[in-house]
């Protein structure tokens, strides 16, 4: 366990040493932003709308007391969405999508000697392949978190108003009531940290692959598992730190 963490840290060090020219990275960065960020918008949107809707309906169903005003429902939807759903929950979903993709791609490149081919040309393969992915994740995850936060609240609005649980006026009042802008900031910070963890852990798993197709599959699986664990631990630490 400790030796794995040690090798992970050495791997991180390798990412930032002996880089190629900036021009090379720019194109790779744009490609990865599309591969990692843009292609995840759909799944993030679906998850956010439905989870927002479910939170709204569930909260209403469990808060039937007449002394609690109905706008509390959208108030809860807002806080849940901003604090956990749009960052932690979204990143657990992205660990599955982005993490397995990164580990599978790098694992395949490793076992088919494409990484060796880069190394013999004198290119730092870790930095050339992984740094653009890391930067793309750190750049696009916060944007996805903003989309997710917005759509989560919107999903709650749709479910609440269409089913008649809450009036549009109450819903809007609730999401504005005692709003703390700092929570948006927390969500963005969390997305940046989780983007870093997911991209580097998955890349490390893929990069460490040895053997054949079977091992590539295993690398993808452990990339997802380990990224999820890291995200949850980091979530707890950040919660202690930021609130």
């Amino acid at each position: 366990m400790l030796s794995v963490i040690g090798r992970y840290l050495i791997f991180l060090g390798k990412l930032f040493t002996r880089r190629e020219s900036l021009k090379v990275y720019w194109k790779r960065f744009i490609d990865e932003c599309i591969g990692i960020g843009v292609s995840s918008v759909f799944i993030v949107a679906i998850v956010a709308v439905f989870i927002g809707a479910v939170v709204c309906v569930q909260t209403r169903a469990n808060l039937v007391s007449p002394v609690i005003p109905v706008y509390v429902v959208s108030n809860i939807v807002r806080d849940m969405t901003l604090l956990e759903l749009s960052s932690t929950f979204m990143c657990v979903v992205l660990a599955g999508k982005v993490g397995s993709n990164i580990a599978g791609e790098l694992g395949t490149m490793k076992i088919t000697e494409q990484i060796d081919a880069l190394e013999v040309m004198g290119i730092n393969s870790a930095s050339y392949l992984v740094l653009p992915k890391l930067l793309a994740a750190v750049f696009t995850f916060p944007l996805l978190a903003i989309i997710s936060g917005f759509l989560g609240i919107f999903g709650g609005y749709l479910a609440g108003t269409l089913s008649g649980i809450i009036t549009p006026e109450d819903y809007i009042y609730g999401i504005r009531y005692s709003f703390i802008p700092f929570n948006v900031f927390i969500s963005i910070i969390k997305a940046i940290v989780f983007g870093f963890l997911i991209s580097t852990i998955s890349a490390f798993q893929g990069y460490d692959t040895r053997g054949g197709a079977l091992e590539v599959g295993q690398a993808s699986t452990s990339a997802v598992t380990n990224s999820c664990i890291a995200v949850l631990i980091a979530d707890y630490l950040l919660a202690e730190l930021l609130t």
Binding site: T108, M109, T112, E113, Q114, D116, A117, V120, M121, G122
Partner: peptide, 18 residues
């Protein structure tokens, strides 16, 4: 780097970038 520039390698499976 100087020596690496003077090398060409054909790997077992070709190792072409997919």
């Amino acid at each position: 780097k100087d020596i690496r520039r003077e090398m060409g390698v054909l790997f077992q499976g070709g190792a072409l970038f997919d």
